[in-house]
Amino acid sequence: MLGTGIIKGMVETARNFVGSYHDPERLTTVQYPEERLAPKENGRSFPFLVFDGNDQQAGLRCVACQICEKECPPQCIYINKSKDKKPDYVGKLQFYPATFDIDISVCMSCQICVEVCPFEAIKMDQVFELSTSDRFGKLLLHKPQLAKPNEYFHQLHPTDANEVDARLGEEKRKAEAKAAAAAAAAAAKLAAPKPAPDEPTKAT
């Protein structure tokens, strides 16, 4: 009969109306500034630079190779390479960025810079409360604002960070082993006695 559908619907909406008052479970809204959801591991907003240890200048992983600057689709990364060098995590001397700026008013959070960086130096942050009163100056983030410790990276993306740490640790161990082997070889070379005159004949 005409109208039964409307009555059914009215009953349903009335149930919602009353139910939402005595059963707060029905309300899905998270009232943001007071309540907030736990961040998701895969969430991402803008990039930041990772450093190891406590000193953000000494520990910065970025070697100013400028790959990310070239790859960034909207071209919002600005890097100036240093004149001198500093040791990286394996102890090898590398350049470092004298300045490293990201214009987050342009950045589109595509994560391409993260994908292309060969040094695990740039990662995606999750901060989103970035509104400021100055849309030019304050949205251009500089190196001191961008550099964040490895522990922070661990907090945001634990899986990713552990995997990166394992790989870097492995590389470092290999490099150290290699260095140790090289050192041992050099030492052995130094320590070894002059080859006896009959030895080459043995080889032949």
């Binding site: 909406t13 919602n16 109306f17 139910g19 939402s20 008052y21 029905r26 309300l27 899905t28 809204t29 009232q31």
Partner: peptide, 10 residues
């Protein structure tokens, strides 16, 4: 308010 409650919003 009422429309919100009907749609389970605040």
């Amino acid at each position: 308010k009422i429309l919100g409650r009907i749609q389970n919003r605040f």
